[in-house]
């Protein structure tokens, strides 16, 4: 076992992890932050996306020991300080960007990473950025619309309408 210390959603946390403990396991099982989902556990679906030092990563494909000393942000850290939904989260609700909600934590974290680097993405850029996030319910259109809305741009009409 090795001791790891990291900042998760602004709080310093420590724990004992094994070499093969994944970051998802540390977040979900040790810290009980179960908002980060595990859809595939094979690096394909993006349900487990969190930010490590500001970058979107698949937490099922990174060891907890590698996040020692890092700044980690999960979906639990996305709401505003007063508990109200962040702009991106609110847009997902307003534009019906989720159905079962399983992919949503990863979608929101990916969207936040995109908008940090590219505050006014085109629709094509949004779709391209979400390549690693799979949703089995929505058909993606409303997720794309939510992200366009969250970026303060006109929301495109979509093929389904």
């Amino acid at each position: 076992m090795t001791k790891v210390t990291m900042t998760v959603n602004g709080k310093t946390v420590s724990g004992e992890v094994k070499g093969n403990t994944l970051l998802t396991e540390f977040l979900r099982e040790d810290l009980r932050l179960t908002g980060t989902h595990v859809g595939c556990d094979t690096s394909q679906c993006g349900a487990c996306v969190v930010h490590v030092n500001g970058e979107a990563v698949k937490s099922c494909t990174m060891f907890a020991a590698e996040a020692d000393g890092a700044e980690v942000k999960t979906i639990e850290g996305m709401a505003n300080a007063d508990g109200s939904l962040s702009v991106i989260q609110q847009a997902f609700q307003d534009y019906h960007g989720l159905q079962c909600g399983f992919c949503t934590p990863g979608m929101v974290m990916s969207a936040a990473a995109l908008l940090k680097d590219n505050p006014k993405p085109t629709e094509a850029e949004v779709r391209d950025y979400l390549e690693g996030n799979i949703c089995r319910c929505t058909g993606y259109h409303n997720i794309v619309r939510a992200i366009m809305a969250a970026s303060g741009q006109d929301v495109p009409a979509v093929a389904a309408e």
Partner: peptide, 9 residues
Amino acid sequence: IGDPAVRNR
């Protein structure tokens, strides 16, 4: 290559 999260690691 892959997707943004893969490229970040």
